[in-house]
C-alpha cells in the first residue's frame, strides 16, 4: 500500500528526515515511536502533503503511484487520512457541512454521484453513536470550543465516515484521559480491516495497549533506528529512548 524509500526531507536548510525506509502492506498497523524532535510529525505531514517540506532524496509510493506528486486533497480522496495532533478550529463551518463536502469530494473523485441526503444522515448518526458523541456536535462549528478529547474524537468520526485506506494517527493519544482514549481506540479498532492500514505516531506506549500494532518502529534523529513487534514498545517504555538513541552510530548527542 505504502512504500517509503530512502526518504530525506528538509525544512529550509535543516534536514529533518535522513533516509527513512518503511513498507506498509494492506491491513497492517504500524506504530512509529520516538522522542520529541525525532521527525515523527514531519513524517505524517510529508505523507499528507503539507507544504513547507522539501524532499531532497528518496521516494514515497502509494498504491503504485508517486505520492509526492499529488496535491493534499488528491491524496485524501485517494484514501489517505491524517488525524491531526492539533485539529484546527474552523468557526463558521459546521461539522456536518465539512463531512458532507469531504464525502462528496471523494465520491466525485471516483466518478460517483453525490451522497443521498437521507443516507448520509443515517450514516453520520450511526457513526456518532459509535464514538459516543452527542449529535449536537454535528451542527457545531468544526472543533470550535471542543475540548482536547472532543477534537480527537471528532477526527476519528471523520475517519469513520470517510473510510480511508491509509490512516495516519498523529499523537492521537496526547491530551486524552483514559476514558476518551478507550473510546477513540474502540473507534479505530472497529475500522480495522484487511484492506485498511494504520500508521500510529506516538510518543508513549499507552495507546498501544488499546490498539495493538503489528510492527513498531523507533524514529530517532530522522532515521528508523529499530524495528520490531509489539514487544519493542514495552521494552522502550522500560528502558527509555536513550536506549535506542544510543544505539545509533554516527550521531552526535
Amino acid at each position: 500500500m505504502l512504500k517509503i524509500e530512502n526518504l530525506h526531507v528538509s525544512v529550509g536548510d535543516k534536514p529533518i528526515l535522513k533516509g527513512i525506509n518503511l513498507e506498509i502492506k494492506a491491513g497492517e498497523i504500524h506504530a512509529i515511536m520516538g522522542p520529541n524532535g525525532s521527525g515523527k510529525s514531519t513524517l505524517s505531514h510529508v505523507l499528507s502533503g503539507k507544504s513547507g517540506y522539501e524532499i531532497t532524496q528518496g521516494s514515497v509510493t502509494y498504491q503504485a503511484k508517486d505520492l509526492t506528486e499529488m496535491a493534499p486533497e488528491i491524496r485524501a480522496r485517494e484514501g489517505i487520512f491524517l488525524a491531526f495532533q492539533y485539529p484546527v478550529e474552523i468557526p463558521g463551518v459546521s461539522n456536518i457541512y465539512l463531512l458532507k463536502a469531504a464525502l462528496n469530494a471523494i465520491r466525485k473523485h471516483h466518478g460517483q454521484p453525490e451522497v443521498d441526503a437521507m443516507d448520509f444522515l443515517t450514516l453520520v448518526k450511526h457513526k456518532v453513536k459509535l464514538l459516543e458523541m452527542d449529535e449536537k456536535f454535528l451542527y457545531r462549528a468544526v472543533n470550535e470550543g471542543f475540548s482536547g478529547g472532543e477534537k480527537k474524537r471528532n477526527e476519528i468520526l471523520q475517519m469513520a465516515i470517510l473510510e480511508p485506506k491509509l490512516c495516519i494517527l498523529d499523537e492521537t493519544d496526547s491530551g486524552l484521559d483514559i476514558d476518551a482514549l478507550k473510546v477513540v481506540a474502540d473507534g479505530v479498532n472497529s475500522l480495522r480491516s484487511p484492506d485498511r492500514s494504520f500508521v500510529m505516531i506516538t510518543h508513549y506506549q499507552r495507546l498501544l495497549d488499546y490498539i495493538k500494532p503489528d510492527f513498531v518502529h523507533v524514529l530517532a534523529h530522522g532515521q528508523i533506528v529499530k524495528s520490531g513487534g509489539p514487544e519493542l514498545a514495552l521494552e522502550l517504555e522500560e528502558k527509555g529512548y536513550s536506549w535506542v538513541e544510543g544505539n545509533q552510530p554516527g550521531v552526535a548527542a
Binding site: P72, E73, A76, L98, A105
Partner: peptide, 29 residues
C-alpha cells in the same frame, strides 16, 4: 489561515474551495 486551508485539503477539499469556504465561514459567523 494556511493551517485551516491545509486542514480542509487533508479532508479532500481543493484549495480554491477551501479558501471560499473559509471566507464564507468568516462572514457567516
Amino acid at each position: 489561515d494556511e493551517k485551516s486551508i491545509f486542514y480542509l485539503q487533508s479532508r479532500c477539499i481543493d484549495e480554491e474551495t477551501a479558501r471560499n469556504m473559509l471566507t464564507f465561514a468568516f462572514a457567516n459567523e
